[in-house]
Computed example of a mutant assay.
Amino acid sequence: MGFFLETLIGGLMAGMLYALIALGFVLIYKASGVFNFAQGAMVLFAALAMARFSVWIPQWLGIESRLVGNLLGFAGAMALMVGVAWVIERLVLSKLVNQEGITLLMATLGITYFLDGFGQTLFGSDIYKIDVGLPKEPMFLLEGTFQGGVLVNKEDLYAAGIAAALVAALSLFFQKTGTGRALRAVADDHQAAQSIGIPLNRIWVIVWSVAGFVALVAGIIWGSKLGVQFSLSLVALKALPVVILGGLTSVPGAIVGGLLIGVGEKLSEIYLGPMLGGGIEIWFAYVLALVFLLVRPQGLFGEKIIDRV
């Protein structure tokens, strides 16, 4: 039972990190109605900016404190992501208002390759380390209940807590604020939103900036765990099944989808892997997403689209 709980807790914590990345996809889709393939590149670009700025800025200012360096690096990386959001709106999105969804989708693919190349040009292609002070040592829980206790990684626990707090804050932002309601209005109909005075360009800058912030937090967490390298953008691919499972328009769906996939892949790898030859954790999420596409394409919490003719 103790080993089962270890696997379950590990899956839940991994699922919260998947949900955090998936949240970036949901934010962009809710505001523009387009699936943002650039989210993985944004995670990598933001992590690279944090890794390099936290070293460069203290050197330029002659500061030796790691905490101050991390804060300055975070501020610099966030400013860069806001600048990227403004450039994307000014040079890409503003030119494609009311265009077909496939046009916007191809635009995000172009943004993906641009950010990958520009990030390598600006920050280099080495493997960098992000050290924000997350504890690396494990800890044991429920030692009085189970023999040997339940082993939990402190870094994963802190990361899951940060991800959960951010997801909750963004859920409240969408539901309770005027800007959040304006974002939903823009997603429903660009022209109608403009006709009632909602500034489309400002809304898109806001939502891409928020998605950049989410990408930055996700990049810091994953960069702290795995190191900042160009394969980091592949981690974001695990968020694709999450949004398919939870629904492209649902913030709670991103949470539930992330938790289901995180737990499902861990349990299946441990308990089914020995019988099926292992490697289940690699493809489990995509097979589950395929099943949902066949049975319930809109996901668990997504809005069912009805076309009237």
Rank of each mutant, 00 (worst) to 15 (best):
A14W: 07
L72I: 13
I28T: 08
G247M: 03
V242W: 04
L237Y: 10
F25E: 02
L183V: 15
S32E: 02
V26A: 13
L109E: 05
A211Y: 03
G257I: 13
L23K: 05
A160T: 09
N70S: 05
L290W: 02
F174Q: 07
R90T: 15
V207S: 08
I306S: 11
S32V: 00
S32T: 06
G33K: 05
G197A: 02
S209R: 15
G247W: 01
A49M: 02
I255Q: 00
G247D: 12
K30Y: 01
F140N: 10
V243M: 06
L115T: 03
G62M: 02
F140S: 11
M42G: 10
F3I: 06
L141S: 00
V97R: 10
A159L: 06
Q194T: 09
F123N: 06
A187V: 04
V263I: 15
A163R: 00
V92M: 07
V242P: 12
E303L: 06
S125G: 10
A75G: 13
I28A: 01
L234C: 07
L5T: 14
V214I: 13
L245R: 00
L27F: 03
V43K: 03
G83Q: 15
P297I: 13
P274H: 11
A164T: 05
S209T: 15
M1C: 05
K266V: 01
I244C: 12
A192S: 15
A75K: 04
A182T: 09
W86M: 15
L226I: 14
G257N: 13
L183D: 06
A31L: 03
L172E: 04
Q194C: 06
A38M: 05
F114P: 01
G15V: 13
K136R: 13
V92Y: 00
G124M: 11
Q99W: 04
L293W: 13
